[in-house]
Design a protein around this nucleic acid. Structure first.
Lengths: 234, 234
DNA sequence: TTGCTTGTTGTCGACCTGACAACTACTGTC
DNA sequence: GACAGTAGTTGTCAGGTCGACAACAAGCAA
C-alpha cells in the first residue's frame, strides 16, 4: 500500500561499552575489516535483524564482535544518529546508539570468532574514530558521567561484591577528579538504597592497610537513587 | 552490494509537544485520519524525508500536522522506539521520538491545512493514545520534569519576557507540587546564569497586587544550569 | 616494635534549605 | 481617599548538608 511512498532506511545499533581499568575510563573499539573506513577504529555495532528488538540487537552485536560476556552487562539506549550523510553507502543508515558498562574487562583470547577488539583509554581514541562515532562517544561519556550522580551505574563497573574504595575509584576515573575518602565513605553508607553489607572484608588494594568491608549493590544499574552523589568538587 | 542483505525499515518521528495552560501541563495530540488506529488520538508525527535530518523532520511534521508556530520551539531527541510489533503495517517502523516545549499554546483557527489537533491535559490522555504513544508520553513527561531541575527548559514554556511568578507556575504545573514563592524567588535571583532583568515591571496575574519585575532567560533551553533547581520538597 | 598504608570515624565552620513572618506596591471597593 | 485584599519581594532562623582535615583502626613489612 505504501511500499514505495516513503524513503527506506537501514537501521543499525552501535554500542559504547565502558570499563574502568587501572584507574582510567576505557572504551571498547573494533578495527573495521571492510569499507567504508576500512582499517580504522570504530564502535562495535551492526544491522538490526528482521524481527529483533533494538536492545537485543545491541547485545548480540557486542557479543558477536567482541566476544565479551553478555552477563552482568548494563545497557541503555543513548541516542539515535541519522544525519543524511553519516554513511557513504547507498540508502540512509540510521543508528541507535547504546551505552553499556561492564565489570568483565577481559577480552577472549585470540582464536575465538571475535573480531579484532581492544580496550583503549577514552582520551586516546577521542577524535580518531570512523563515521560519526566520535560524536557518539562524546555523548556516551557525558551520559555516563551524569548517570553516576543519580543512579547505581557505578556499581556496574565492578564485580558483584566490592569495597567502597573500589566504588570511589570508579567515580574518580569517570569524573577525572580526586574524591575525599572519608566524605565518600560517609555519604555512601548513609544511603540505604545503594549498598548492602555482606559482612565480609578483604585485604585492601595494595596488599597493605586495614581490610575493607565488602558490599553488594542494591537495585538495577540505571535505576535512580533517592539521594544523588553530586559531582561538584566532592 | 548489500541491497537485500539486511532488513529494511521505515523511519518516523513523533513529537511530544508540551505547554502549560491554566496551571496544568498539557500535550498536543492529533486525531488519526487513517488506519491503523483511525479516529484515535496520537502524537503528531510522520515519515522522515529522503534527505532530511531527523530533527528537521520533527519540526516539519509538527508544523504540518498542527499548524503551530515553529519559532521559539525547543526540541530535543527523546528516545527511539523500535519494537518489532509496534506498528501493524508491513515492514518495520522505527520511530525517533522528540520532546518539545512551546510558549505559543494557541492553535491556528479552523480552516487552515492543519490536521485535527488539540491541547489536552497530560493526565487525561495518558492511557488512551494509539500505537505505543502512551509509553512515549510517559518517557517525555519524566524527561521534562527532570530537565526542569538542571536546565533552562522552564523558560521555554513562557514568552520571551516573564516574571518569576510565571516561572514558578511552570515548575508547579510540571512537578505537580506547590513551591514557596519566597524561597523560589531568592533561589532564581541568586543564579546568575538563568535570568536577566529587563528593568521593566508588569501588573500581577490576578490584576491585583504588587507589580512584578520582568526577566528574560539567558542561554539555550536545553543547556545545563550551574546550580540546579531541586525538586525535593521545595 | 616501628613505621607505613589503607580504610573508617570525628569534628567543625561555611553554606544551603525550607518554613514562615514581615513588608511593599499595587487594585478594587466603600 | 481610607481600607481591605492580593501578589511580589525581603528577612529571619533553626536544621541539615558539604568539604576540609584530623584522628583512629587494622592490617603488612622490615
Amino acid at each position: 500500500m505504501f511500499t514505495s511512498d516513503f524513503p527506506i532506511f537501514y537501521v543499525t545499533v552501535d554500542v559504547v561499552l565502558f570499563a574502568v581499568r587501572e584507574g582510567r575510563l576505557e572504551v571498547l573499539v573494533v578495527r573495521r575489516g571492510e569499507a567504508p573506513h576500512e582499517g580504522r577504529w570504530a564502535l562495535p555495532g551492526g544491522f538490526v535483524g528482521d524481527d529483533e528488538e533494538l536492545l537485543a540487537a545491541a547485545r548480540r552485536e557486542l557479543v558477536e564482535e567482541t566476544g565479551i560476556a553478555g552477563e552482568g552487562l548494563a545497557l541503555e539506549q543513548l541516542k539515535t544518529f541519522g544525519a543524511p550523510d553519516r554513511d557513504r553507502r547507498p540508502h540512509r543508515v540510521v543508528s541507535v546508539a547504546y551505552l553499556a558498562v561492564t565489570p568483565n574487562a577481559e577480552l577472549p583470547t585470540a582464536g575465538s570468532d571475535a573480531r579484532e577488539a581492544e580496550w583503549r583509554p577514552v582520551d586516546d581514541v577521542t577524535g580518531h574514530l570512523a563515521f560519526d562515532h566520535d560524536e557518539i562517544l562524546a555523548e556516551a561519556r557525558a551520559r555516563v558521567a551524569s548517570k553516576l550522580e543519580y543512579t547505581r551505574l557505578a556499581a556496574a563497573f565492578l564485580p558483584p561484591t566490592f569495597t567502597i574504595a573500589q566504588l570511589r575509584g570508579v567515580y574518580e576515573a569517570v569524573w577525572g577528579l580526586a574524591i575525599d575518602p572519608g566524605n565518600f565513605q560517609r555519604k555512601l553508607r548513609a544511603a540505604t538504597d545503594f549498598l548492602a553489607s555482606t559482612g565480609e572484608s578483604v585485604k585492601p588494594a595494595g596488599g597493605r592497610g586495614r581490610p575493607a568491608e565488602v558490599f553488594r549493590a542494591i537495585g538495577e544499574p540505571f535505576e535512580a537513587l533517592a539521594v544523588p552523589v553530586p559531582r561538584s568538587s566532592m
